[in-house]
Simulated scan of single mutants.
Amino acid sequence: MVKVVANTRGYIDGEIRETGEVFTISDALWQDEKRRPKWVDAADAQPVTVPQATKAKPKPKPTAAIAEQPQGNGVAEALGGPPPDWLPAQGDDA
Rank of each mutant, 00 (worst) to 15 (best):
M1P: 13
V2T: 13
K3S: 10
K3W: 08
K3F: 00
K3T: 09
G10N: 00
I12R: 02
I12F: 09
I12Y: 07
D13A: 02
G14M: 01
E15R: 07
E15H: 05
E15W: 06
R17K: 15
E18W: 08
E18Q: 13
T19L: 10
T19W: 04
G20Q: 01
E21M: 11
F23C: 05
L29N: 00
W30V: 09
R35M: 11
R36K: 13
P37L: 09
P37A: 01
P37T: 04
D41M: 03
A42M: 06
A43Q: 12
D44A: 05
T49E: 14
V50P: 00
V50M: 05
V50G: 02
V50H: 02
Q52P: 02
T54N: 06
T54C: 01
K55S: 12
K57H: 01
P58I: 03
P58K: 14
P60Y: 00
P60L: 14
P60N: 06
T63V: 15
T63L: 03
T63S: 12
I66P: 04
A67M: 08
A67T: 10
E68G: 04
E68K: 15
Q69G: 09
Q69E: 12
P70C: 07
Q71I: 07
Q71G: 07
G72I: 03
N73C: 15
N73I: 07
G74L: 08
V75C: 15
V75L: 14
V75H: 08
A76P: 03
A78T: 07
L79P: 00
G80L: 09
G80P: 07
G81L: 10
G81A: 13
G81E: 13
P82V: 11
D85L: 12
L87D: 13
P88Y: 01
A89G: 07
Q90G: 03
G91V: 13
G91S: 15
G91D: 15
D92M: 10
D92A: 14
D93I: 11
A94R: 10
A94H: 08
A94L: 07
